[in-house]
Structure formats: structure tokens, C-alpha cells
Design a protein around this nucleic acid. Structure first.
Lengths: 144, 144
DNA sequence: TATCATTTTGAGACAGCTTATCAATTTCAA
DNA sequence: TTGAAATTGATAAGCTGTCTCAAAATGATA
């Protein structure tokens, strides 16, 4: 299987090595599918992969996506009763505007905010590794 | 029962009136308990109120907290698998700096960031109702 | 105040999403 | 190649939150 995502695969292998975990066919498969997305639910990935791999279990998808979170490749985001897994490698697309009316999600990037975050962190003696910024509100359509 | 939260009770009554809903003993009780908190889960409120009112149902708590959301008194936020109901009258929410080493949490507030958030939202046609900003990293002690 | 249509409640059943269980399989270091 | 350890798939179980429905409470009206 062609592996286009060399860097992320490397990061995964490193994490696996550090924690006595193993590289499996399923983990490779799920990683490659995941990295093609910007964010996805476990359920959606399950249906998507079922076409090429009908016996891939839903539990394996969940376990693997959570593994990716541990490895720093993914980030879980809870909205309503669902969990979405964000692809962290899509740099500069970590922040979200979320409509609480129709659940539409708009991604945005703002360097000034990032800079201020660094400033706040520095002032408190922190070094930021990652962050999460979500703005909840109503989009123009749902405002009525 | 003494009602200290006159303004909020007024807002609730107004909402009830507009929607042909009724003011019940339970709704008063839950409102007063809720307004004493900054944010709380339905489950936590259930246990808290069980002491004084053992027959208050969990479903009633959920229904009532959702009613408060409709009335603009509360705001639901999803953390992990749980939903927390924020007391909207407690203005001045705080953002969090979270140390991934020792799990220390530092709260902060930054008006400039808030202003930029509004700007981003406006540019996308959104009206922000609430937000969540979490910075993950290492505190000075955990940096080694 | 009494009446009574309407709303609300409490208790538990139910539903959706996620994790735990466990026998069978796969990985990988030796 | 071997075998201890990790992983998988299938499904049961768990958790949070909503729905159901008979009984009770509310409040508009007389």
C-alpha cells in the first residue's frame, strides 16, 4: 500500500515504539484514510472504510482514532452527542466557528490571536504545545 | 421559598408566559439552585437537590436546564461525554491554560483575544454566544 | 373559589455513542 | 521459527440524555 503521509507515519511509529505498541495493517489503513480528511467521526470513517474492508470493526476505528490523539496526530472535539476527530496536520486550521443552530462548522485562522495566545502563555510561564479555540453561535442563516 | 434571584426569575416568567408554559415548584427550585453555580451538570444537580427533595426526577432536571437554555438563562456546553450548563448571569468567563505534565489549570482572560474573536465571527456572518479557548502545554515546573 | 383543559412531573424504558470483554489472530523481538 | 504480548472483530455493556405515559399540578375562566 502506497504511503503518501511519510511524516505522520513516522510520528505514529515513534509513538508506537515508545509505548510498546504494534504497527498493524488496520492502523496503517486508518491513518491513511484519516489524513485525507480534515475532520471526521468514527462512524463516518467506519462506513467509508467498509467499502474496501468490510470486516474492519467500529471498535477498532474508535481505538485507533484515540491512539492518534495520544500520538498527537488527531484531536477529539465533542459536539452534541458526537465526537469529531480533527486532523492536526492541517496546520492553521485548528480553530472553529460552530453554529449551534445547524451545526455548520467554519474553520478559520488568525495569526493575531495565535500571537496573543503565546503572549498569555509566556506571561504564565507556559510553553504551548497545542490549543483549541471554538466559537459557538448562530450563522447568518440560523439567526432568522 | 425566598427568591433572591429576582431578575432571572423575571426572565423565566417572561419566557414561560410567551410559550404557554407553567411555573412549577420544581422550576423555581431548580432555578435557585442553578443560579448559585457557575456551571454544573444535570447529574451533579440531581444529587445536590436529592438531599432536600428526594423525589425530584433526573428527567425533570434535564428538561428544566434545557428550558433555561431556551430562556437564555443557561448555556449548554459539551465536555467529553458530559454536558455542562453554564450560568449565563456569571459574566466574565475564563479561558484555560492547561499543563499536560501536571494537569495544573490556570485561568486567564484576554480582552484583545475576545475582540478578535468577535471580528472573525462577524467576518463569517456569525454571532457568538459563547466560546471555549484552551491552551495546552507545559508549565515552568514541568518543562524540566 | 371551583372547574377543568392543558402542562408538568416522576419513574423507568429506550436510544445513540463509546468503551469493555474475550477468544482468536497478528506482530515482532529473540 | 517461536512465543509472549498486543491487537482485532463481534458484541455486550455502560453512560448520558430523551421519550413515554399515567398521575398530579397549574392557572385561565366562570
Amino acid at each position: 500500500m502506497a504511503n503518501i503521509h511519510v511524516k505522520e507515519m513516522q510520528a505514529l511509529k515513534e509513538h508506537l515504539g515508545k509505548h510498546q505498541l504494534k504497527l498493524t495493517r488496520q492502523r496503517e489503513l486508518i491513518l491513511n484514510a484519516f489524513l485525507r480528511q480534515e475532520h471526521i467521526t468514527a462512524e463516518a470513517m467506519y462506513h467509508q472504510l467498509a467499502k474496501s474492508d468490510p470486516h474492519l470493526g467500529l471498535a477498532t476505528i474508535y481505538r485507533t482514532l484515540n491512539l492518534f490523539c495520544d500520538a498527537g496526530l488527531a484531536q477529539a472535539r465533542h459536539f452534541g452527542s458526537q465526537t469529531k476527530y480533527d486532523n492536526v496536520s492541517h496546520k492553521g486550521h485548528h480553530d472553529h466557528l460552530i453554529c449551534t443552530g445547524c451545526e455548520k462548522i467554519v474553520e478559520f485562522e488568525n495569526e493575531e490571536i495565535e500571537r496573543l495566545q503565546e503572549e498569555v502563555a509566556a506571561r504564565n510561564g507556559f510553553i504551548i504545545k497545542t490549543h483549541r479555540l471554538e466559537l459557538y453561535g448562530l450563522c447568518s442563516r440560523c439567526r432568522h
